[in-house]
């Protein structure tokens, strides 16, 4: 099993519903977020192109945050989901330094926090909160090993890219272009 997400940049309108849903679902402290919207404006008027991306932890296959963690608090569970065990984290910041996507932050309570793909919801067979609420249905989530999952189908039918592939982390958030 390999969980992954595809973000349709052509359908995303940048409404930030995914951000708010995540903050609510996961009790993210004020001023922090586990997912966020990036707006890229390319070209100059009148030939302007906009790309909107809902970004989050890439749950990388070759995750540097797990490698550099001195206590093993950062770890990978079934399905390739990268998680942090709060009471094993010493808050040294190594994983924050190691993430090319800056997807991790230091929680005000001291431990490091990040997107979990809503692991608690996956266990119940539900989709991550951000996927569930997206009003344009631009987020596809599922198992890459299952050819009939939403994400597999989306990746089969569309052109896609990942962010900073040159960082060598083998990210698992795909952007449909």
């Amino acid at each position: 099993m390999r969980y992954a997400m595809a973000v349709d940049t052509k359908k995303c309108v940048g409404c930030s519903d995914c951000v708010v849903a995540c903050q609510t679902e996961n009790n993210v402290p004020n001023g922090y977020c586990r997912d966020w919207i990036v707006e890229v404006v390319a070209g100059s008027y009148p030939n302007v192109e906009i790309e909107l991306r809902s970004e989050r932890c890439n749950h990388c296959d070759n995750s540097p945050c797990v490698r550099c963690c001195p206590t093993g608090a950062s770890h990978i569970v079934e399905g390739g989901v990268v998680l942090v065990t709060h009471n094993e984290c010493i808050g040294c910041g190594a994983c924050i330094q190691s993430c090319p996507y800056d997807a991790r932050y230091s929680h005000p309570e001291g431990y490091v926090d990040k997107c979990t793909f809503c692991h608690h919801r996956l266990e119940k067979g539900q989709q991550p909160a951000c996927v569930e609420v997206c009003p344009t249905n631009c987020l596809y989530f599922g198992d890459l090993d299952d050819p009939n999952s939403d994400v597999s189908k989306a990746l089969r039918n569309r052109k896609w890219k990942v962010l900073a592939p040159e960082a060598g982390t083998k990210p698992q958030i795909y952007f449909l272009t």
Binding site: G14, S16, V19, G31, Y32, C33, W36, I37, V38, E39, V40, V41, A42, G43, S44, D102, Y105, S106
Partner: peptide, 13 residues
């Protein structure tokens, strides 16, 4: 070709 990034993220540190 100019590229301008605007990120909706503003996390302390």
């Amino acid at each position: 070709k100019e590229e301008l990034f605007v990120s909706g993220r503003d996390i302390p540190f």
